[in-house]
Write a protein that binds this DNA or RNA. Structure first.
Length: 418
RNA sequence: GGAGGGAUGACCGAGAGGCCGAAGGUGCUCGCCUGCUAAGCGAGUAGGGGCCGUUAAGGCUCCUCGAGGGUUCAAAUCCCUCUCCCUCCGCCA
């Protein structure tokens, strides 16, 4: 949810929204609805003030005066009753329109859409394609079974098996350890949430079609632990000096992947269910851009710790989505495809989602909305895809990344006989 | 799944139709005082919206006592629905 006051007062705020390519005329309709609502609000409030005053007098009045005063208050009540539905309607209309407005892009974000992300930096050497792509390798060595998963659950599901499971556990533990060292509180959150949680986190109504519904629509499977993590300080006022409050959530994530038919059909690159360690930070509004840099730095240390060549890209305004004011993706070099593919994402939502969550901080004698940020620490599926390609050996074996060896307890996995 | 009890400000806790956005306490902030500490004394201390005001200090006003509806001139207080928490019984990884 955006700040309506800033929309009408600050030209720069409006420009940031327009750079996200919003529907023509939407902002003007929002402003008109806002103005209409405020006019009606003032009207109704004045009347309500008179009615309140009239009521109060009745309590103090002598018994003889009461009937007349009650009649007067009654009349005001009727008048108010006529105006209230109109006001309520205007409020609903304003809200519906306002919810469609995205968070303004930060001024330094590049213009454009999907293809206009700016490469911020590149690290590591892109290598040549391995003997097998991740999907074939995963199957051959017995780490991934897609065939039986398809029978059980349909396409885009997988059994992760054998040593790959231990590698996942090692990965998660290694990443969690890194986060804990940076002050993140480890969390295993609920993955089933109510509709309200989806709305407040900003996923509904826009992304509803991407989400699995459970229990007759009472509960929804989260596509990322960002959702339950964001609610950890719902309707709270935090102390300035406890920020940033950082959480590292580990959970399974569920995504319908609607509209991706035929895309990334190999292996476990894009599946309906995967595990992920997610970072979430409640930051001081004056320091959220530093926090974004800190989260990205952590992501880089994870990717580079695994020895993966990568680059950091600054997502263009038109591709940011509704909530992010700025977003960096880390893309790793996927040799079989000969290109960089997204493994992590990191966004500053500024106050956009905090406004709906009502998560604030105390600043002196008043309060302010916090800024929320979130970023992938480790999407296990995609990370394994990368490891399958970069750590397969010509003899068909798999070498465990250095940092994971102590946590796995083995350093290589032999190929399986055909 | 069955039977009860409850939800009030940062926290504890009163309040049972008008004088209640809310007693009292704890905590916190500021000031005073005792050579330090503890104690003591005084003052302050909910959030959100709108309007006025120099984007100030401040003022006016509306809303909020778990959420949403209702009754009433008037609701923290009465009625209905929902959510959550607790106790007991059953079941259970």
């Amino acid at each position: 949810m955006i700040d309506l006051r800033r929309l009408r007062d600050e030209p720069g705020y409006r420009e940031g929204i327009e750079r996200k390519r919003v529907e023509e005329g939407l902002l003007d309709r929002v402003l008109a609805a806002d103005e209409a609502y405020r006019a009606l609000l003032n009207d109704a409030e004045q009347l309500r003030a008179r009615q309140n005053a009239a009521s109060k007098e009745i309590g103090k009045a002598a018994p003889d005066d009461r009937p007349a005063k009650i009649a007067a208050a009654s009349a005001l009540k009727d008048e108010l009753a006529a105006k209230e539905p109109v006001l309520a309607e205007a409020e609903v209309r304003l809200r519906e329109l306002a919810l469609q407005v995205p968070n303004p892009a930060h001024e330094s974000v590049p213009d454009g859409g999907e293809d206009d992300a700016a490469v911020v930096r590149t690290a590591g050497e892109p290598g040549a394609a391995p003997a097998h792509d991740h999907a074939m390798f995963g199957e051959q060595i017995g780490f991934v079974d897609i065939e039986h998963a398809a029978e059980m659950s349909g396409s885009r599901f997988a059994y992760l098996m054998r040593e790959a499971v231990l590698v996942e556990l090692a990965l998660v533990q290694w990443v969690m350890g890194k986060l804990a060292a940076e002050g993140f509180t480890p969390v295993v959150p609920p993955v089933l949430v109510r509709e309200r949680a989806m709305e407040e986190a900003g996923f509904f109504p826009t992304d509803r079609h991407q989400v699995y519904e459970v229990d007759g629509g009472e509960l929804f499977l989260v596509g990322t632990s960002e959702i339950p993590l964001s609610g950890l300080h719902r309707a709270e006022i935090l102390d300035e000096d406890q920020l940033p409050l950082r959480y590292g959530g580990f959970s399974t994530c569920f995504r319908r992947e609607a509209g991706t038919y035929g895309k990334d059909t190999r292996g476990i690159f894009r599946v309906h269910q995967f595990d992920k360690v997610e970072m979430f930070s409640f930051a001081h509004p004056d320091r959220s851009w530093e926090e974004l840099d800190a989260l990205v730095a952590l992501q880089e240390s994870i990717v580079s710790g695994l020895g993966l060549p990568y680059r950091v890209v600054d997502i263009a305004a038109g591709d940011l989505g509704a909530a992010a004011a700025r977003k960096y993706d880390i893309e790793t070099w996927l040799p079989s495809e000969g290109r960089y593919r997204e493994v992590t994402s990191c966004s500053n939502y500024t106050d956009y989602s905090a406004r709906r969550l009502a998560t604030r901080l105390r600043t002196g004698k008043s309060t302010e909305l916090v800024h929320t940020l979130n970023g992938t620490a480790c999407a296990v599926g995609r990370t394994l895809v990368n490891l399958f390609e970069h750590y397969q050996r010509p003899d068909g074996s798999f070498a465990v990344p250095e940092v994971l060896i102590p946590l796995c307890g083995f350093d290589r996995v032999e190929p399986r006989p055909p």
